[in-house]
Computed example of a mutant assay.
Amino acid sequence: MPVIQTEELTKQFPSTTALDRLTIDVEPGVVGLVGANGAGKSTLIKILLGLSSATSGRASVFGLDVTKDGPRIRERVGYMPEHDCLPADVSATEFVVHMARMSGLPANAARERTADTLRHVGLYEERYRPIGGYSTGMKQRVKLAQALVHDPEIVMLDEPTNGLDPGGRDEMLLLIRRIWADFGITALVTSHMLGELERIADHVVIIDGGTLLQSSSTSEFTRTSQFLVVEVSGEAEAVAATLSSAGRTVKRDGTQLVLSLDDDETYDAVRDAVAAQGVGLIRMEQRRHHIAELFGAERADG
């Protein structure tokens, strides 16, 4: 059963339409909500949390109507906002305990859950330091911890890798994947960085200008194409020339060769060309589409 459903959901502001008849179903797992800045991602989350009202259409979380059951929905949801909203003069422990108490946990349970959650996000050793002295990555982890501390059934994470360097993004993405893999908590993750969600999401929803472009499993988005990628240990140009002389169309993609996979004999042609040049075959596999490529194609078609 979908944990989130929308039907013809529309949100209009005086100068723009943030959501335009958006209809989606979100199943349990890690779900990526992809779109450029201003695509309507944050607006959708606020409507789902009951913090903003839609102009028309319907939306539900766990089968609960967002217009009538906002408090009941928020009891079961963790929310990580996009922007920095943390108090600088309190420690991570104080802040997360406070958020746990706000979610209804008794004092002792709130302290225990806070310690466990800060350990999970990698802040246990730093838990008593004032948040104002934290790095951007540590602040993002505090926001993640407060979203998780009350053991929600789903977390809505708005641009959780914002401001992070590549290493920090990788660590955050791993934490998000573990939320589902280790604890069975569904994660709805927004991002404008398409490649990130391709790595961790089970399902991807792409919106642009508040309109649904595509909604599908990640495996369907990154489906295998009819091109063969070949990587050799040296003399790639010579291998390409040999394949061309055998009637194969070859393109260079950096250090790789990309061939049209016309038939099974393409594999034999690569084998023969590599052997003829006396180089090593490092990798040979069908190329996969990337979400970024498909997103660009959708926008071009539109």
Rank of each mutant, 00 (worst) to 15 (best):
Q5T: 09
E82D: 12
V155Q: 06
T6D: 03
K139A: 03
V204T: 09
R287K: 14
A276K: 15
L228G: 07
T17K: 10
F221R: 01
G63C: 09
V61A: 05
E235G: 02
R141S: 06
E293G: 08
L48K: 12
L48C: 11
A187F: 06
L212K: 03
H120P: 00
P166E: 11
K68N: 05
L123N: 09
E153H: 15
T23Q: 11
A240I: 11
D262L: 11
A59V: 11
D182R: 11
I282A: 04
E220A: 15
Y79R: 01
L164P: 15
P160K: 13
R283H: 05
G40L: 05
V31C: 10
G29H: 05
V232M: 08
R111V: 10
G32P: 07
E220I: 13
I207K: 02
V155W: 07
E196V: 07
M99I: 09
P81E: 14
E159N: 13
G57F: 08
T43Q: 04
A109K: 14
R21V: 12
V155I: 15
L294M: 12
S245R: 14
L243Q: 06
K139H: 03
L175F: 06
F62Y: 08
M193F: 07
D182L: 12
H150W: 13
E293F: 03
R119M: 10
K251E: 13
Q286V: 12
C85G: 03
D84T: 08
Q286P: 15
Y128M: 05
E112D: 15
V97L: 11
E171C: 01
A241R: 13
R21M: 03
G210M: 02
V230S: 03
D20V: 06
G247M: 07
Q226W: 00
D20F: 02
S91I: 10
D151I: 13
R177A: 12
F95D: 02
M102G: 02
D25Q: 14
V97K: 11
V96T: 05
H83C: 06
E235M: 11
T161H: 10
P106S: 09
S216K: 06
E265L: 15
S191V: 06
L33G: 08
G137K: 01
K139W: 04
L51I: 10
Y124N: 09
P152I: 13
T186N: 05
L64G: 00
T161A: 15
L144P: 03
V205A: 06
T249L: 04
P106A: 08
G210S: 01
M1W: 00
R287G: 12
P28E: 07
E237F: 02
A39L: 01
L173I: 02
P160M: 12
Q12G: 00
G78P: 00
R119Y: 04
A100S: 12
P152A: 10
